[in-house]
Design a protein around this nucleic acid. Sequence first.
RNA 1: GGGGUCGUAGUUCAGUUGGUUAGAAUGCCGGCCUGUCACGCCGGAGGUCGCGAGUUCGAGUCUCGUCGGCCCCGCCA
Length: 593
Amino acid sequence: MGDLVRTHKCNDLRQTDSGDQVTLMGWVLRRRDHGGVIFIDLRDRWGITQVVFNPEHNAEVHAKAHGLRSEWVLAIRGRVHNRPDGMINDKLATGSIEVMVDELRILNTSKTPPFPLDEETEVSDNLRLQYRYLDMRRPGMADNFIMRHKAAQAIRTFLNDENFLEIETPMLTRSTPEGARDYLVPSRVNAGKFYALPQSPQLFKQLLMVAGMDRYYQITKCFRDEDLRADRQPEFTHVDMELSFVNEEEIYHIGEEMMATLFRATHGLEIKTPFPRMSYDEAVHRFGTDRPDIRFGLELTDLTDIVKDASFKVFRQVVEKGGVVKAINAKGCATFSRKDLDDLTDFAGNYGAKGLAWVKVKADGEWQSPIAKFFKDEECAAMTAALQAEEGDLLLFQADNPAIVHQVLAEIRLELARRLALLDKNEFSFLWITDFPLVEYDQELKRHTSVHHPFTMPREEDIPLLDTEPAKVKSRAYDMVLNGTEIGGGSLRIHQKELQDKVFATLGIDEKEANDKFSFLLKALELGAPPHGGMAFGFDRLMMILLGRDTIRDVIAFPKTQKATCPLTEAPAPVARKQLTELYLRPDWEDKK
RNA sequence: GGGGUCGUAGUUCAGUUGGUUAGAAUGCCGGCCUGUCACGCCGGAGGUCGCGAGUUCGAGUCUCGUCGGCCCCGCCA
């Protein structure tokens, strides 16, 4: 750069700057060489400015500019000119001016990039991640990270103003039972012992409440060693918070105001608060899921009572075995072709459906369907009434145990919404889900497991049920759902040892194990733990929705592939044998090959 | 652990029923061009068809395996 000092960014200059001497630095976005005059679009994080090399203005600099190529890094000094009449480019914020270059310094050259840095070309994920620093130069990507920064700042400002303290918690901590698989870190100075990377700062934030910090937050990394999805990465970011001496209402209020602040800061959008609330039972009953997308209808209708005595054996036997029969009325979808229905049946199969019964409602309410013949007229009429079916509708049935019926129909409901283009990315529909069960029975483990986590407070009036019918106990937990995605959740926590012991017992964690794994928490609960509760938001998912992207990878600077590798650094990678022996690790995978 | 899909020039893709020398666009290189803004015109280079077997007179194309990307199920308190 020599003695050159940047005076402006590439989005700064306007006609009011005409005549000024300026110095810009940035990358060559495009070069238009007319043999005579040469135009370069110079790009930086802020924008684009056209710079001009004219042989009549400065022959030496013009000659040098001939050699410029894409993504070379330049410093240019020159004078701002208003563009000639009719030459104004409306597509550029700086399109009414250009900089006539007096001095050109090539700060660095560049090889031809391995893929075009425009927004249009769809480049393979592998290549993008391998050259992530180039991928991030593309305008659409750069915007994501600018917005992510703004969002984080808005959240910090809001929580600071609400008297929260940002406090860091350890990345090297201990493995705890329950939950996801841990990432483990061997200890060099403690042979045979391991740290775990945190799945969340859950226990530390509770201890911060015991410490009297009263209101804590942290925007922090969490780690879970599970298989990846479009919206799941092994390391991801939580907006984590915890409050003392609060009830649900105060926590809902904080969550709602934080979202309102966030949408104002990022989209300039006023979202409506308070958010609607729905119990877990209602959500599952009406939508088949505890994270319903309420931007559209297509709700589930329970037909179990109507078909329980029908001559259709498939439905009747399901009901006899304690299953349910539910259906969705896909309004106006009787136009679906045989292939559409076959595709939908295959789709349902992904979620455990054994089939997908369908009915097309014709004129006069007549049923066109492979199963129509199994039902009496009054049964058809009762179902038609329950589903509010009209001519032109398509009815989709699912009969099985409730878990399958709900999952299948919930997914079909979403698939129908996608096919019918009912999902508006610019609509943001928030919802609280409340009154979750505390525990559910795990058939494989033959015991109850936490729906939220083991530190969740049961509803007080349900506590006696812990001994008799744990599955009926409701918890004081809540999820925030945005457009069908769970973006956050939390609970009031247990703050008394007796109750925590009781819940551990319900989960099949005996006194020895509880003391072994959680003695530090149990001790703290006996040393003046205040009532407390909180929540955590999945920051990456939130940004993904906010930016209308289809994958969480687009809002993470250096994400992993589906196999949890990093094409850029080639992590994970082998390590030297010495490193292993230092850690008291003796690999046997070579023998196993 | 399982299902699906994709892999051809630097990039994005096409490639018929298995049949001569694997194409297009863009990018790249060279030349021309003084008002473009996805500049234009002319010319050129560029391929281990992911990898390995197999079938066949002959494989980008068919079969099997394998590696990798993506989507999904399971898993993710």
